[in-house]
């Protein structure tokens, strides 16, 4: 219990991942859904860094750098889409964003 093993970090990561998934599924505000996605990416990063420390292999931390780069790109493009959509429809409610549904 007092010894912190990679299992502890994996459990923390899994719990944070679940919180993010619940946020994506439950919330209806698109911006909060995007923030939940950031939480999910952070959960993955915690796992990668913990295992990188455990295995003494820097590949995990390199992957974290790439995940952060992709997250920045995702946030920029996603928020651009949100702004473009808000300009047209005056809403950020995901239930009303259905113009591509068939």
């Amino acid at each position: 219990m007092l010894e912190i093993t990679p299992l502890h970090y994996s459990l923390l990561s899994a719990a944070l991942f679940m919180i993010g998934v619940i946020g994506v599924l439950v919330r209806r505000n698109v911006i909060i859904i995007f923030m939940s996605i950031e939480l999910i990416l952070n959960a993955v990063n915690i796992n990668l860094v913990a295992l990188s420390d455990q295995l003494q292999d820097l590949a995990g931390q390199v992957f974290v750098v790439f995940v952060i780069a992709v997250a920045a790109a995702e946030a920029a493009v996603g928020l651009g889409i949100i702004i473009a959509f808000y300009r047209n429809k005056e809403t950020v409610n995901i239930d009303e964003i259905q113009i591509m549904r068939w």
């Binding site: 995702e74 920029a76 493009v77 702004i83």
Partner: peptide
């Protein structure tokens, strides 16, 4: 990142 930056500006 470059492509995402251009895409965000265009959007």
């Amino acid at each position: 990142l470059l492509v995402a930056m251009v895409g965000a500006i265009v959007l």
